[in-house]
């Protein structure tokens, strides 16, 4: 019995090239555009985004034995890309590192945790420039906050999926997302004010 189950286990771990090809075709390749977009929104650079996508697929090949077929391929691939971005890319850029990020999180923690910013995007102030202002606000967020906005509001991952992709508890997902949205809303409110509009605190 022991020998049998050991053999069986090895068979499921060692995929044939045909099987690997099928996993790529059926489960991995369909997420290439989403991965590219994620990479682009993280790096704001097309070449870096391409590098990240390629790197993600090469790593997916290398670690394919740890992927359980039929599970959440998209979340698995996003986790790989997020790790590559954090580990490699951040070292090469002037992105705020962990200490800067802790500082930001502390500033926001020191505020009332129940503080909720509100901004009514239907207001005329945003008119035609709304697109630019939102992407500017998103791009100016510290990377951990930008990351969670992308995963949630652009890709539609659940709190649980984001928790696995980022490697933080679900409670932290919820609070970080809340803060990220507050930051964007505050920036948009500041923009509205700078245009001379009176924005009431809701």
């Amino acid at each position: 019995m022991i020998v049998q189950s050991a053999t069986k286990e090895r068979n499921t771990l060692e995929l044939s090239p045909e099987m690997k090809n099928r996993v790529f075709e059926e489960e991995f390749y369909p997420h290439m555009d989403a991965l590219y977009n994620f990479g682009y929104r993280l790096t704001l650079n097309e070449d870096d985004a391409n590098d990240l996508v390629q790197d993600t697929y090469l790593k997916a090949f290398r670690f394919i034995e740890t992927y359980q077929r039929g599970t959440n391929a998209k979340a698995w691939l996003f986790r790989i890309m997020k790790n590559s971005f954090i580990n490699d890319f951040r070292k090469r850029t002037k992105e705020p590192d962990k200490t800067d990020y802790d500082e930001v999180e502390q500033i926001y923690n020191s505020e009332d945790a129940h503080y909720s910013a509100t901004v009514d995007l239907r207001s005329e102030v945003f008119g035609g420039k709304l697109g630019d202002e939102i992407t500017n606000a998103l791009n100016s967020l510290p990377v951990d906050f930008r990351l969670i906005m992308l995963l949630s509001d652009i890709e539609g991952f659940t709190y649980e999926e984001m928790s696995k992709i980022i490697g933080i508890p679900i409670g932290t997902v919820r609070s970080r997302l809340h803060r990220a949205r507050n930051m964007i809303k505050d920036k948009l409110t500041a923009y509205a004010r700078s245009q001379g509009y009176k924005v009431d605190e809701a």
Partner: peptide, 19 residues
């Protein structure tokens, strides 16, 4: 309605870029 609109607009304005 304000929050719903906010979430929708953010998604819509960050339209997916394709590889």
């Amino acid at each position: 309605e304000i929050e719903k609109n906010f979430k929708e607009v953010v998604k819509q304005k960050c339209e997916r870029k394709c590889v």
